[in-house]
Design a protein around this nucleic acid. Sequence first.
DNA 1: TGAATTTCATGCGCATTCTTGTTGTCGAAG
DNA 2: CTTCGACAACAAGAATGCGCATGAAATTCA
Lengths: 222, 222
Amino acid sequence: MRILVVEDDTDLNRQLVAALEEAGYVVDSATDGEDGHFLGDTEPYDAVVLDLGLPSLDGLSVLENWRRDGRTMPVLILTARDRWSDKVAGIDAGADDYVAKPFHMEEVLARVRALVRRAAGHASNELTCGAVRLDLRSGRVTVDGSAVKLTSHEYRLLSYLLHHQGKVISRTELTEHLYDQDFDRDSNTVEVFVGRLRKKIGSDMIETIRGLGYRLGAASDS
Amino acid sequence: MRILVVEDDTDLNRQLVAALEEAGYVVDSATDGEDGHFLGDTEPYDAVVLDLGLPSLDGLSVLENWRRDGRTMPVLILTARDRWSDKVAGIDAGADDYVAKPFHMEEVLARVRALVRRAAGHASNELTCGAVRLDLRSGRVTVDGSAVKLTSHEYRLLSYLLHHQGKVISRTELTEHLYDQDFDRDSNTVEVFVGRLRKKIGSDMIETIRGLGYRLGAASDS
DNA sequence: TGAATTTCATGCGCATTCTTGTTGTCGAAG
DNA sequence: CTTCGACAACAAGAATGCGCATGAAATTCA
């Protein structure tokens, strides 16, 4: 999962990035509205954390621009302001959630978790597929009840596949969501990780659709 | 759009119902957890407004039960409590949004609007023609309910035909859309793939219009 | 620094795709 | 009605290139 943080306070920015990375996300960040707007317009993020008070281009305008351009990724708004009318404006501009500063990092994490989860159409924090179970809060993975130790990339891959289970995911989509902007395109890293993951969770979980991508779960249904 | 309101304060309940109906929704309401839980489990709502402090069955439990039963409709939580840890608990239990009491009705309406709008984006889109069904999201194809395995090109071909069913598609149009610009003109690959597809989905699906191209669907006409 | 993790490179197996050639079908003209 | 030419369907071998395994190099992390 790939997240964009747009926050001008460099300290807070750093904290957010650190916390999100700690939680297993790939994070890009911008410190002003123009950069943020550009990134959000060009890169496929799974969620955005957006401060409203930004230099060069106001957060609300950034959001409105994205929505006008048809970008639909979930956006969590941060703001020092506390007036409810601002909240309504933000929500109607297309924000998906809202946190008032000062906030607890835990709360932001929970909300981002929920946004990403919901954007993929899941209501619960436990993602399961067959014998595989992933708890988004603790980051633990079990297969048939017994814990499995995954490396950070393996976890990201599995998490993405579980969020979008049943769907065919192209290799480019995976690289775009599991890595930040600069990544060597013609590389077989993804295949390597799919192979590793298969070894750990069972090779019949991830299906290969030759020429299109991979698909997890719901292999045999009518 | 049908909304469920679960709120024990009869005054507030009535206000919510009135405001939501005013906004054009069809609204059911319950004043305790058990009733609310039952309704949410049996009726298909597009969104739920749920108070946390309820008699007979706590709101959080109601929500958890719904999620455990696989109900995925968006839920907006109302609560008097303001401690952030409660918010996190609510969000992690599967709530989609959160409003602290006391609130402005405008805000609730804005959030419900947002929830409904977002949930609408998850309609699974499938293309069908006769017994053939193609789910664009999962890339699965079924004929008479039983799954059919297609290769990448076969899938693209079928998808294109389904998108333009009833229309006559020339062979050049197909090559132009299934291949990138430079493609050996005098080649019969398209016919080969039409043949393969016919073998897999039934030969009466794709009609040949001699000299013009192919047509899928709309079989019964002169 | 040492261990774990991630990335990169090579070669192979095989599903998929393409080509070729033949047979079959339709339409029009003699 | 017959015959001929053009177009389409089918089959099967050939070639392409995708995806996987494996191991070594590089990088990160403790």
